[in-house]
Amino acid sequence: MTPTTIETRPIRPGGLKLWLERYPFLPALIIVVALLALNGAFSPNSLSYRSLTGLLSTYMALIMLAIAQTYVVSAGDIDLSAGATLSLVNVVIVVLMEKWGGGASAVIGAMLAGILLGLACGVINGIVVAALRLQAIVATFATSIFFTGLALYVMPVAGTPAPALFWRSYGGRLLGLPFVFYVLAVLALLLFVLSRTRLVTQLLAVGDDQQAAYQTGLPVVLVRIKGYALCGLFSALAAFCLTGDTASGDPLVGSKMTLYSVAAVVLGGSALAGGWTTVVGSLLGALTIGLVNSLVFFMGTPSEWQNFVQGLAILLVLMAGVLAGRRARA
């Protein structure tokens, strides 16, 4: 028998892999920086303070919605009703603010109602998917039809304006800084606090291996419902940003945004199968979609080709996101 030599060198993950493990949103960040550079190359004006602020306030709603989606994806679920929840909250707060006079107290009251409504939509989804054990894709599609119906009941046609106080604040400045910066700061704080909570860890545990999570004693059904509730909450926040940006109510405004929110989650480097997600990545993923859209515009693409080039570019970045994310996890 030949003596076996024992390899003494410890097996350590490579430098890049370690970085990706610690900061899974790095690929998304690189893509965002590259897109910013390209935007700047085609139109230096697009990198001005003013246009970047504009980009942020336009895409803040999608950022919020992508973050909302991230929490359900963490647990291995998906929410195809996020956009419909956004529409519902949008029309309800616009109607309430108008009804209550459009003053400061009306705005705050309506926003509180909006948050409760978003949470309620999320809990309904959670019960349907986790407690009644329906398949998430089809069940949340069914609830999205229901929520859209409710939104149409509240406001049959688009166009009721939001009070000036609301959208002037959102688009305006506070202490010399654009208001969206404060929104971003509060969002960052909120995400930081949430990342420290037990719930986010539990969501990831359920998404990674539901059976294992159950056997370690986690209340899997409750955790998934909470995940959907969190998704509803952030969908309501997305609705606030959207209302601030468009300054009006539209019962169908969010329907196109649902699939973009899923795309943003994947772009950010999260795994759709669950158990491995990054909210910062989703934020960057939503920005990627915004930057691709503006880049296609600034490149001088003929108008009829813009959608096609956007679609193609997003497909390519989606593939890149999946491949990079897999490298990080492998």
Partner: peptide
């Protein structure tokens, strides 16, 4: 995309939907 690059079907076909919708706009204007 699903086999060679191992992209999850949901993501791959979602991206393809975006491309197809863009293609529709191109054809329709022409």
């Amino acid at each position: 995309g699903v086999t060679l690059l191992r992209i999850p079907p949901l993501v791959m076909t979602l991206g393809m939907l975006g491309v197809l919708q863009g293609l529709l706009v191109v054809i329709r204007n022409g």
